[in-house]
Design a protein around this nucleic acid. Structure first.
Lengths: 341, 341
DNA sequence: CTTGGCACTCGCAGACCGAGAGTGCTACCG
DNA sequence: CGGTAGCACTCTCGGTCTGCGAGTGCCAAG
C-alpha cells in the first residue's frame, strides 16, 4: 500500500470538497485528478483513510468529507501557501498606506482581509503592554478633573479621566507632565513601573496624592489586558457564502465572535505557536460555537517583534492556502506601515 | 362602521403577530382580546383594513399580517411607549457610569441596547462637527513628523500625523500649541475656521508653512463627516431570535449593516425627524437589504442639544413600544454621562 | 496490489393525500 | 344598516410512499 498515494487522495478530497462543498466519491476523484488508478483502488485507500480518522462519510452511501484531523494533515503537510500576485500585493500596500491614523490602519486592514478571503476578518489593536510609550499628556478639564492621554509608538492613543482630591495647580501639572515624559519616553511597560514609583518620591508630600493617582491610572491602563481591543469585519460573508456551510444556524458562530473574551483567548493561544501562520481547525478552537469554523492568524509588529495578531475566520471547509497567503501578506504590510510611522 | 374598532383590530393584529410570529386569524383575535363581537364581524373589518393596505394575507387561506403601512399606523397612533421599571433604569445608569472613557461609554451603551432589545444596536460617536474642542496637543515624533491630537468636550480623541517640510523647532511648536489652544478652546467648528485663519497671519513668514499645514489638518479632520464612526453590537441576535424572521437569508441584512454609508445616511435622515424617537419601517429605509428590518433611533447629546444618535435595528415585526423605551432610556443616560464628564 | 463486477444501502425529490385553519359570501336578525 | 351565523371553498402543511441515483463494500480474478 502506497502511503504517498493515500496522502494524494486526501489532498484531492480536501481540494474537491472545498471547491464543490459536496461529499466527494471515488469516481469523481479519479475523473478530476489524474491519479492513474481505478475508482475501486481509491475506495480501498479511502477505507484506510477513514479507518485512520482523516475522512468520514455523512451517510452510509454518500461520498467522503475531511475531518478536522484530515484538514490538519492537509494544512501541515500537503498544502503550499500560494503567494499573491504582484498586482494584488501592490493593491494591498497602496490601500494600507493611505490610512490617516492608527484607527484607520486597523480599519482598512480588517476590511482588506475580509475582502481578500471572503470570510470574517479580525485585527487586534497593537498591545499596550508590548508597545513603547511615546508621550504622556495631562490636560486639566475643569478645576478637579484631569485628562490623562497616553500615546504609544504604534500610534495608539488611550485616555482616562481622573478626579482629584484637591484643586489642580497649573504649574504642578506642567511640572508633572515634563517629569513623566522624561521618565517614560520610549520605554516599555516592563521597564516602566519601577521608574514611575521612584518618580512619586521626587515630589513634595503635599503633591504626592496627585502624583500617585496619576501614576496609578497610567499603570492601570497599561495593565488592562482585557482592554485589548479587536475589530471584526465581514460577518456578512459568513451568511452569504457560508450560509449553507454551517449545518446548524450561524447564530452560535456570531455569538462566539461577539464574545471578545473568546477571541482574545484564541488569539493569545495562537501567539504561542511556532509557525509563522497559525491555524486552528474546528474543535481545536475549544469552543462549542466554533466547531465548524477555523481560525487562520499570524502576528504583526514593529522591528522588535510581534505586538498583536491579524487573522481570518471561516468554515473549516475553507481555502487554507489562499487564506494563509492573504493573512500573511496583510500582516507584512501592516508591520511595514507601523514601523514607518 | 366603527373606525375605532377597526383600529383596535389593527392594534390587536400587530400585538398578536409580534408575540406569536404567525399570521393571526379572526377567531384567535376575538379569543385573545375582548373585542365583544363575533369573528365574522372581525372578518369584515379585516377585509376593510386589507383594502386600505394596513394588513395582508400571505396565502389565500392564512391569517393576516401587518404591512409596513400597518406598523406605521401602529407606531404613530396606537402604541404608547411603556416606561422601563425603576430597577431597569437604575441598572442602566450604574452600568454606564462605570465607563472609564468615551470608547468605553460607547461600547457599553451599544451592548446595553443590544441586550435590552435583543436586537442589533447601533451607537454613533459624538459628532466632531457639533462638539466643542477642549484641547489641542502637538507632539513632535522624530525630526520631521508632528502628531496632532484633538480632544473634544465629549471626550473624543482624534489624531493625525503630519510630515513637515523643515525640521521641527521645539520652541516654535510650543508657541503654536499655546496659541492654538487659546484660539480654539471651547469653540465649535462653525466658529473656528475664521479664528484659525487669522492665527496663521500672526506668525512670521518663515513659519507660515508649518502653521498653515497644522491648521489645514485640523480643519480637514473636523470636516470629515465621513469619518463619523458608528459601532454595532448584537448581530448575533439577528441570527438567534430573528433567524426565522427573515424570509430570505439574513445575508443582505448583515451586508447592509456593514456598509457604514448606509447606516450613516439613515441616521442622518432620521436626525431630521421631529419626534424624539424616530422610527423607520421596512421599505422606509430605502434600502433593498433592509426591506424586512426597522430602525428605531433617537438623539443623545449634551446640554446644547443632540450630537449623535443611538438606536436599535430589528425585524419589522419587532416590539416597537419596548424598543422605543429602551433606546430612549439609554440615550437619556448617555446624555447625562457626557454632560457630567 | 489492482481491477472489474455486483449487490446493497440510503438519502433525496417528487407525488399524493388528508387535516386543519381561515376566508368570503350569503342570508338573516335587531 | 351594522352585526351574526352558517357554509362552501381554498390553500398550506405535514406525513407517507416510492423510484432513482450515487456511492459503497466485498469478492473473485488478473
Amino acid at each position: 500500500m502506497s502511503d504517498d498515494r493515500r496522502l494524494d487522495v486526501l489532498r484531492a478530497i480536501v481540494e474537491d470538497y472545498v471547491a464543490t462543498r459536496e461529499p466527494v466519491g471515488s469516481r469523481a476523484l479519479v475523473e478530476r485528478h489524474m491519479l492513474g488508478v481505478s475508482p475501486a483502488t481509491i475506495r480501498n485507500d479511502m477505507a484506510a483513510l477513514e479507518e485512520a480518522g482523516y475522512i468520514a462519510q455523512p451517510h452510509t452511501s454518500a461520498g467522503r468529507v475531511p475531518t478536522d484531523k484530515g484538514y490538519r494533515v492537509f494544512v501541515d503537510r500537503l498544502s503550499t501557501v500560494k503567494p499573491l500576485s504582484a498586482p494584488e500585493r501592490r493593491a494591498i500596500g497602496s490601500f494600507l498606506e493611505d490610512a490617516v491614523d492608527l484607527d484607520d490602519v486597523v480599519d482598512r486592514s480588517v476590511r482588506l482581509i475580509a475582502q481578500l478571503t471572503q470570510q470574517v476578518a479580525v485585527v487586534q489593536y497593537p498591545s499596550l503592554r508590548r508597545s513603547a510609550l511615546r508621550h504622556i499628556e495631562l490636560v486639566p478639564v475643569g478645576p478637579r478633573h484631569l485628562l490623562v492621554v497616553l500615546i504609544t509608538d504604534t500610534g495608539r492613543v488611550e485616555q482616562r479621566t481622573l478626579e482629584t482630591d484637591a484643586e489642580l495647580d497649573e504649574l504642578l501639572v506642567a511640572r508633572l507632565r515634563v517629569q513623566l515624559n522624561v521618565c517614560v519616553a520610549g520605554r516599555r511597560l516592563s521597564e516602566l513601573t519601577g521608574a514611575l514609583d521612584t518618580l512619586t518620591a521626587a515630589f513634595e508630600p503635599v503633591h504626592v496624592s496627585l502624583v500617585a493617582s496619576v501614576v496609578t491610572i497610567i499603570e492601570e491602563t497599561l495593565a488592562q489586558e482585557s482592554e485589548e481591543r479587536v475589530v471584526l469585519a465581514g460577518t456578512a460573508n459568513l451568511a452569504r457564502v457560508g450560509g449553507a456551510d454551517f449545518v446548524g444556524t450561524l447564530g452560535p458562530v456570531l455569538e462566539a465572535l461577539e464574545e471578545q473574551v473568546v477571541l482574545m483567548r484564541l488569539l493569545s493561544e495562537m501567539a504561542e505557536d511556532e509557525a509563522t501562520v497559525s491555524v486552528r481547525i474546528g474543535r481545536e478552537t475549544q469552543h462549542a460555537g466554533l466547531l465548524e469554523t477555523s481560525f487562520v492568524t499570524t502576528g504583526y509588529g514593529d522591528e522588535h517583534g510581534a505586538i498583536a495578531r491579524v487573522g481570518s475566520i471561516g468554515p473549516t471547509r475553507m481555502d487554507y492556502p489562499g487564506t494563509m497567503a492573504a493573512v500573511r501578506a496583510v500582516a507584512r504590510y501592516l508591520t511595514r506601515i507601523l514601523a514607518g510611522s
